[in-house]
Design a protein around this nucleic acid. Sequence first.
DNA 1: TAAACTACTTTATTTTATAAACCAAATATT
DNA 2: AATATTTGGTTTATAAAATAAAGTAGTTTA
Lengths: 96, 96
Amino acid sequence: MLPKLDPLLHSELRLAVISILAGVEEADFTYLKTQTGATSGNLSVQIDKLAAAGYITVEKGFKGKMPRTTCRITPQGQEAFAEYVKALKEYLSAGK
Amino acid sequence: MLPKLDPLLHSELRLAVISILAGVEEADFTYLKTQTGATSGNLSVQIDKLAAAGYITVEKGFKGKMPRTTCRITPQGQEAFAEYVKALKEYLSAGK
DNA sequence: TAAACTACTTTATTTTATAAACCAAATATT
DNA sequence: AATATTTGGTTTATAAAATAAAGTAGTTTA
């Protein structure tokens, strides 16, 4: 039988965020927003969910006088991502 | 920017159904149910959606005296699936 | 100093997924 | 032969999710 897909990652925006973070040291809110094309509200909510699950860390600081939210993937997030990719591959080749 | 993922396919159960159908000539309701582990209700609903989108055809007949629902993927469905897979791959390698 | 912009968060709305309940007919049980 | 159970589903209700709209706090620009 096909494996269950981690519902936290099986979301367009959260998957985009995680896969971006998987490839870089860190990324801030604005960068994630432009890269994903998401609205601020949606991005804010999905970042919270990833953080609540321990998949990413969120650090709030300032760049000059402007607020800056920096995100990083955690080892736990990397593992979850790797497993999600593995599970997905089973789906994509299910019929064969 | 990352491509949009076809929302019709970006659903655990519908993706499972489509990828199973992509590999076989046809599959009936019961087979899809056991392979996916889905409940009948959920499967029924998701099959309807895929059929409404023209991704699969649904044929109702009888095997002996018992009803039998047979599903097949359409060329349109195959194309959509191929494109979904292609788009997904961009997600999975986004950060690099 | 007022308007517009940045960087968000919160809340409300819509959509989606899922499960529970139901149905009709067939088969098995007592 | 009645009754219970199983098969193969559909319909409807509920829970969860995604998304959008509105709001907040402060900054820069005209």
